[in-house]
Simulated assay, not measured.
Amino acid sequence: MTPERYAKILRVLSRRQPTLTVLMDQVNKPHNLSAIIRTCDAVGVLEAHAVPPSDGRELDFTGDTFEATSGSAHKWVRVQRHVDAVQAVRGLQARGFQVLATHLSQRSVDYRDADYTRPTCVLLGAEKWGVGEGAAGAADGNIIIPMYGMVQSLNVSVAAATILFEAQRQRLATGMYGAPQLSPTELREQAFEWSYPDLAPGYRERGEPYPALDDAGQIVP
């Protein structure tokens, strides 16, 4: 760990947005998963959520395709797995998130009309079948990206980027990137996990607190 590297970690964490996230409902293609995670990192998402495909396949966060497309972003964005999209929506709502599903319905609104300065989860579905009706119905709102061409929808990773950068725009305008949203304790713990990813699991397994780091990112004896 170099002082420069540690300074960058602290700078990035100071802009992380724990109140902005995504829920990927059965998005299973590695290039889409990795591209969405890369966008999450770019806009400051701390943790993403995902439901695996209903055919029993596990989410693939490995392999050359994922690694190449993610640009190592998966190291900086945790992905919380869920077994069911509706349950995941309810759980996020219980934590205070509004869930906005990318879904065409009678209540759909232009994605730019949503207020992303609120704690927000963007719910995305796989390209072939989209967000499930149950999850879309359980969501607080449905949003769409207006389309004026012959095709009816964007690639899911492109749609995610479009919506998340609108969220970033709104949050920048209100100064939400100007002060840390993580508490000092959360920031210190996350900084240790990012700085020492090989050591952190051992501390968690033993139930021990992370050691303190000095201003250069070195472990304090």
Rank of each mutant, 00 (worst) to 15 (best):
P3G: 11
K8L: 13
Q17W: 00
T19A: 13
T19C: 10
H31Q: 15
V43I: 06
G44Q: 00
A48C: 09
A50S: 13
A50N: 09
A50C: 08
P53F: 02
D60R: 14
E67M: 14
A73T: 08
V79W: 00
R90S: 14
G91K: 00
Q93W: 06
A94E: 12
F97M: 03
H103W: 10
L104I: 15
R107E: 14
R107H: 14
V109Q: 15
Y116M: 10
C121I: 07
G125E: 04
A126F: 08
G132C: 14
E133S: 15
D140G: 15
G141P: 01
I144Q: 09
I145Y: 02
Q152T: 13
S157D: 07
V158F: 06
V158H: 09
A159I: 03
A160G: 02
A161D: 04
T162S: 06
L164Y: 07
A167M: 05
Q168H: 10
L172R: 00
A173W: 01
G175R: 00
M176Q: 00
A179D: 01
S183W: 00
T185K: 13
L187E: 05
E193T: 12
W194P: 00
W194E: 00
P197F: 07
L199C: 12
P201M: 04
G202A: 12
R204K: 15
E205T: 12
R206P: 10
G207I: 08
G217Y: 10
G217E: 08
I219G: 01
